[in-house]
Amino acid sequence: MALTLAIPSKGRLKEACDAWFSAAGLKLELTAGARGYRGAFAGLPGVDVMLLSAGEIASSLAAGDIHMGVSGEDLLREAAPELEGRMHLVCPMGFGFADVVVAVSEYWIDVSTMADLDDVCAAYARTHHKRLRVATKYAQLTRGFFAHNGIADYRIVPSAGATEAAPAAGLAEVIVDITTTGSTLKANGLKVLDDGVILKSQAQLAASLSADWDAQTRATVEALLGKLSAAAGSALYPALASRLK
């Protein structure tokens, strides 16, 4: 069986990903023409490279549909909240940096920490008899982080896009979103809480622990990680091997 490896299909993430594998001597060759979505590495047989969206890669890894994939750590952790038993982060790739943060309206001059937000959530529940709404596409990460900060009086409203507009549109009071420079948040009158960084994310090479790992795919991944280990500066295969049943 071939080892399936999914990489982002477009944008800066794809370019950075191509460059990262090339630096380790793995040149990606598309098999179905330049506009195709399948490929292979020159000089490393047995790897079936697929080009997918970063979100699909995360959910496919969580479901065990592919062996390996490159995606943002934010999406990986959202797809498999505990990671334990479902995914192994093989190696951070040094690009695609972004933070998942809790942001509130700048109008809330009395709120700068999660503890302040806890107070406001509790007061809101008391006066309105309903929960303050948090708009996000990161429901799992939000739940974990809010629980860690002891905040119970809120509810998550799913947001598919333009999350930063939710407070002004009256769809939510608070947001959890991903940001690189914070300028989009600022332009929308939002500020990040001082202790509101949920995750400092970057692109990760990840392996699915629930995928079908036979002897051949194990041998292939050992060869693949052998090439990448030199570039990463440490042996990558032993840690993965110890996680595979």
Binding site: S105, W108, A123, Y124, E173, G189
Partner: peptide
């Protein structure tokens, strides 16, 4: 720039 986001001016002032 910031929206009141569900809170009144008086509420924000009092808590601040």
């Amino acid at each position: 720039l910031g929206a009141p986001a569900g809170r009144t001016r008086e509420d924000v002032i009092a808590r601040a």
